[in-house]
Amino acid sequence: MITELIQPFDFHQVVVAPWTEHLPLFGWIALMGFFVAAACGLVGNYLILRRMALMGDAVSHSVLPGLVIAFLLSNSRGTLPMFIGALAAGAVTTVLIELIHRNSRVKQDAAIGIAFSALFAVGVLLISLYADQVDLDADCVLYGEIAFVPLEPMVTLGGFTLGPESVVRMGLVLLAVGVGVLVFYKELLVTAFDAGLARTLGVNPTVFHYGLMAMLSVVVVGAFEAVGAILVIAMLILPGATASLLTTRLGVIHLLTLAQALVTAVAGVMIGVWLDCSIAAAMVLAGTGLFVLAWIFSPTQGLIRRWTRRTAA
């Protein structure tokens, strides 16, 4: 019975074909998956360090009204209006959370819950009000559709074909995140570790908080079409969570994040091909699989190591 539910595993079709005869199709999907997971993962590492993982949840949802309003105002789905809408939504979310949390007894996690669900509701409401004008469907908003990436118009630069629109866009987002992490490495580190010290050193933690939230908004909107508002959260948190089980150095965490992103994308495509299912979901599951492996087998803090240490003691 189970065998009827699960597709038979055809080695050539699942493991070889996506990277050979079907490369023009799955190559772009895997590359997009890598860009999304890597960019999200690098930003997500700082969310985890600041114990603000829930902010990823918040911004990924509250970006929706920003996109809808940007679309209604500009009447286009161009990159620039979408990024401006997302940045504005991200800023509004961050300010709103601070306002609620500072000016009431409501704690920060509850304030996050209020702010993002309210903004997401505004987005849903606007979509249903202007359904005939807004070309955004609810499923795509929630789960994205990475399989459509190869169908997009190709971007060419000086006669050279770069790739599908969203892949190029996400590549640039990853580049921006990578440069940001390299250039502001020490500022991001000290504001996350000890905001008080940072302030006395003349590094304003508020500036870097908003900067990180802006980066988060950009990453989320870049990833939105591919993986949607819900799966993007996994992309933000999983790489850092996995890496932090394997190492205690931030630099190594970043490198492992890139490795995890690559494995996630490649394995996700293969699982998607095998089971003929949503590739975005398959990528998230692949990432979860890596997390579970690290959780069990990590040489320093894995479950097995913990058990053996306990029996040895």
């Binding site: 360090l49 250039v183 502001f184 020490k186 500022e187 580190l189 000290v190 996350a192 570790f193 000890d194 010290l197 940072a198 006395t200 050193l201 003349g202 590094v203 932090s244 190492t247 205690t248 150095r249 931030l250 965490i253």
Partner: peptide, 21 residues
């Protein structure tokens, strides 16, 4: 936090380094 002892002590030097250095 995923930093070494030396990393933390180095933070004391950040004030004299410019932005991005």
């Amino acid at each position: 936090f995923p930093v070494s002892v030396l990393d933390v002590v180095l933070m004391g030097r950040y004030g004299r380094l410019g932005l991005g250095r």
